[in-house]
Design a protein around this nucleic acid. Sequence first.
RNA 1: GGAGGGGUGGCCGAGCGGUCAAUGGCAGCAGACUGUAAAUCUGCCGACGAAUGUCUACGUUGGUUCAAAUCCAACCCCCUCCA
Length: 416
Amino acid sequence: MTTFRSEFLRTIAERGFLHQCTDPEGLDARLSSGPVVAYIGFDCTADSLHVGSLLPIMLLRHLQKSGHKPIVLMGGGTTRIGDPSGKDEARKMLSEADIARNMEGIQKIFGRFLTFGDGPTDARMVNNADWLDGINYISFLRDFGRHFSVNRMLSFDSVKLRLEREQPLSFLEFNYMILQAYDFLELSRRFGCAMQMGGSDQWGNIVNGVELGRRVDSRDLFGLTAPLMTTASGAKMGKSAQGAVWLNADRLSDWDYWQFWRNTEDADVGRFLKLFTELPLAEIDRLTSLGGAGINDAKKILANEATRLARGEEAATQAADTARRTFEEGELADNLPSIMVPAAELTAGIPAFALFARAGLAASNGEARRLIKGGGAKVNDGPVAGETELITSAHLKDGAVKLSAGKKRHALVKPE
RNA sequence: GGAGGGGUGGCCGAGCGGUCAAUGGCAGCAGACUGUAAAUCUGCCGACGAAUGUCUACGUUGGUUCAAAUCCAACCCCCUCCA
């Protein structure tokens, strides 16, 4: 690929964000000549986003940092219909209150990565329910439906794959790309938005939006996608022991978030440093060239930087400190995730399995039992005699009992 | 509306009257080896219970049977073809 003149394209190309672009030269010229408004759409089916969404969030951050205006589009309208993707499982119908609450939670995350406001390069958040809700079917079809060719829609990967695999594809879902294309048009009209970004799976939808803008308004719109994030071993990103790796602190502790990055596979470290931190490339090259034990230092830096972005400076240093004390010095760090247990209960004694389940180290009593039987459970770094061994206040050390599931997952039990 | 195929645990996918809490793979958890990595090997992997065990689960609801994921009926949903 040629060298870009615009800071934004150059940055994201160097850092590995760039997968496809509708018109790289045109976009480069446009970005070089002044601030550009660009957007990425996000679902609001949950009250937090997970690491899987981090890539697009970082794209918006780089965009803003290089002097352009990011728009965060919340899919309030589309969420209301129920996201039909991912087969036929129950389409959760979210109430407006749910959606509003989810948007609020998600907004908190963006506040960490973007600067919101009314200035020329300040980010803003909009909800597509604002225009989708009021659509009149007939006039919508007449005004916009005629610009879509079914023949062409059928040729898009998202649709084609489904048909080839004989998987269900509802009309609703088929219409998704039309609604998304319409979002782009609407944003270009309202805010002069000229670019849509997204994951590579959004390519078809984005291209449709670009074309709709040209046909209806003769606008020059641009589309850009980032590669789909997987780990080097091919797994989807964002899953951890406990499930999704949430960006919101109230869904996943700072400690666990830091640990997620600390446990990155060797082969991913360089790529992740480029994508999920803002360290200069030279520094990243230096870190990843260390090899051997040095790669562990690179992982710590990755964890620190990534945690700092999402959770703040303090959270990052605390998590790093806790990790150092827990893993490298083997002492009891009081910043581990902890649960409170009534002092009286602890005096009476709680069966080990029940305590592990309560501490969140096992999903059920049965799982806790298996963990203990399998020898993976530790109390105060010592072995557990049996599943039913009573843990009492006699086990308190420095005011807490340390439970461990394996070498990495720890929790403290404190009396209250 | 007609004909055919199908709906099984987080996912994929066997089973097709008892020995089925249901083969296998993926994902996950733990152990060994290491570097809080990967790869590899081993164990675990519905819930509850100290436990013989109990309960819940093979689209839904009924039925046949001593016994049903497996047979029958109706219904719901999906796929393909025809109208």
